[in-house]
Amino acid sequence: MTPVTLLSRGAVVLLCCWVLLPIYLLIVNTFSSQADVSGFPKNLIPPMDTENVEFFMGYFGVGKALLSSLKVAAITMILSIGAGAPAGYALSRFDFRGKNLFRVFVLMTRAFPLPLLALPLAVMYIRIGLDDSVLGLAIIHTVLALPFAVLITYSLFSGIPIELEEAAWTLGCNRFQAFVKVIFPLVLPGIAASAVFAFVISWNEVFAAAVLTIENRTLPAFLLQSLGTSPLHLKFAGGAVMVVPALVFIFLVRKYLFSMWGIANR
């Protein structure tokens, strides 16, 4: 084995540990009893004590919050791709005045911290009746996810030669057909990736969710705030409750991510 392959394999192992070790420790502690969590030495094999997990299964409102989270994340995905992909396409295909300025301004929505915006937003939401609704929260999350959706799809479309589209036009497609039949299949993996990104942004967002929803709270707003002040063994179990659905989702969409990175999907 040459030093280079040895080095690269070492790097791969290191990266895997970096990702997997925290998840492994989370799982071990989730399935440990309270005494084991605060005790030493630690178990390396989970003792499969399900008491902590059962606490969360029976915790009032977890199921409802999980469902709210999924709904908000799904709507955020749809809205941010629905609005972001056309914007990205326009940025890459058309020249218009103020294009560069526009690209900077797209990012400006992320320049203001949410705690600053939350109060006026909440007042407005209460007045127009969007308050405490899944859709209302999804709109805010879309605002947060949109800059990334626009910029990711912009670079995706820019990577596809305009000649492909022009060829389709000469063969009888109109602009829309050319997009659907030629461009869309090529960018689909990338779009999926930016949808995953939108999903993750929505899944992790706490402050807006905690202020704009009360009865329809998302899982992070519902749990994360309480977990910060909870005993250690419940922090681990609550952490697992938060992480596992996101892991499952990433696992389900992994083939789109892999094909974007050019890894064969078998």
Binding site: P115, L119, A122, A210, V211, E215, G228
Partner: peptide, 26 residues
């Protein structure tokens, strides 16, 4: 009763919003 605990930041922001809007759920 729907008991909803919260951290102080969101707790206060939410209350201020309801008071400013003049109607609320809390």
């Amino acid at each position: 009763v729907d008991f909803q605990p919260s951290e102080t930041g969101p707790w206060l922001t939410r209350l201020q919003a309801e008071m400013e809007a003049g109607s609320g759920k809390i």
